[in-house]
Amino acid sequence: MVLSVWSEIEKIESQTTLTSLWEQAQTTFQSYGFPFAIYVATDDTEMPPFVRTNIPEVYSENPPADDPFLRYCCYSYEHVFTGSEFLDSHSMLTAEERAFIVAAGERTGYVSGLALPMRLRGSDRFGGFILGTRLKRRECTVLVDANLDNIRLLCLMIHRRLEEILLESDRIAGFRERLISPKMDADAVLSPRQAEVMFLFAQGLSTKEAAQVCNISPHTVSEYAKESYRKLGVRNRVEAVLKLKH
């Protein structure tokens, strides 16, 4: 495995927001010859799928929930070749699904690529990556064969980091919900950013570490903290955390 893979992994691991992570993911995929990228995950509820893509036109006529990837590719971790160049390899596709794939290629230029499931059906949610190219079938096959192990590893790392960021966002949202409650005095209610800083302090992060997570300066974190202390009627972070936990 080439050293550059580990360099890419370090870049992925350093991202702290969904936006920066997806930007880094696109850069990584493009460096391997895949200019088109989709991440889609869903569950068995009526909620729409979670989607990140640099070719949103793919779903201009059909919603992400109708993507054949979710219907057929998430029963195994095996990679699947995708795009109109590989239509004759997928006899199970309906006429509507074939039309969806052809139209997506016409709108975006994505005519060949591969799908890599990260979670399978039966999990709390399932989905993964769809990476595309403008290459003919044979050229795409050669590209995938030469890079599959590295691409799979990078997708796993991006997927893991994405889930970490989403989980942290959920925890912060829950923490804010507890803070911004009818039981608190109106003048003690923290702003979302102040609540986020207090949450990170409660997890044991330093001012510098909280700044890195929030993508702001340590000085700005300190200002949010001071205003939070004032609203909560406390003198320091220890008192603030103790008050918010009770």
Rank of each mutant, 00 (worst) to 15 (best):
S84K: 04
G127Y: 10
D187A: 12
G174K: 00
D66W: 08
N150P: 15
R138C: 11
V80W: 13
N150C: 13
G174V: 06
T94C: 08
G105R: 00
L156H: 05
G83N: 02
D66M: 01
T94A: 01
A95N: 03
R119C: 12
R161Y: 09
H90W: 11
M157S: 11
S191W: 07
L153E: 05
T82K: 10
L93I: 00
S84A: 10
A146W: 10
G127L: 09
F81P: 14
F129H: 00
F175R: 00
R134E: 08
E106I: 07
R134C: 09
R160S: 12
L114Q: 10
R71G: 06
D67T: 04
I158A: 00
R98Q: 04
A188Y: 04
R171H: 06
M157G: 10
L154M: 06
L162W: 01
V144Y: 01
D170R: 02
D88V: 14
L116A: 07
K183H: 07
R171L: 14
R178N: 09
D124N: 11
I165D: 08
G109E: 01
G83M: 07
L93Y: 03
R137F: 07
L148G: 01
V189M: 10
D66L: 10
E139V: 13
A173S: 04
F100H: 12
L154V: 09
S84H: 04
L120H: 13
R137E: 09
N147D: 05
T133F: 11
S76Q: 07
Y110H: 08
D185W: 14
M118P: 04
A103Y: 04
S123E: 15
S181K: 09
A104N: 02
P182K: 01
S89L: 14
L143F: 01
D124Y: 06
R134M: 11
L135W: 02
A173E: 01
Y75W: 15
Y77M: 09
E177W: 14
T141Q: 10
E177F: 13
F129T: 01
G132L: 06
R171W: 15
E78G: 03
V189H: 02
S89I: 13
C74R: 03
D185S: 15
E106G: 09
L148W: 02
L120P: 15
S91W: 04
L156Y: 05
S112Y: 02
R121A: 15
V80K: 11
I130K: 08
G83W: 07
E97K: 01
E177P: 10
I158Y: 00
L167Q: 06
L114A: 10
M157K: 08
S84C: 14
P117Q: 12
E96V: 13
A103L: 08
G83F: 05
E168L: 09
L148Y: 01
R176M: 08
D88R: 13
P182T: 03
A188K: 02
P68R: 02
E168W: 07
L166T: 00
T133M: 11
K183E: 11
F175I: 00
R98G: 12
R160M: 15
F100T: 08
L179F: 06
D88P: 12
A103W: 09
R134N: 12
S84Q: 05
R107Y: 01
F126Q: 04
A104R: 00
E168M: 07
S181P: 05
R119L: 14
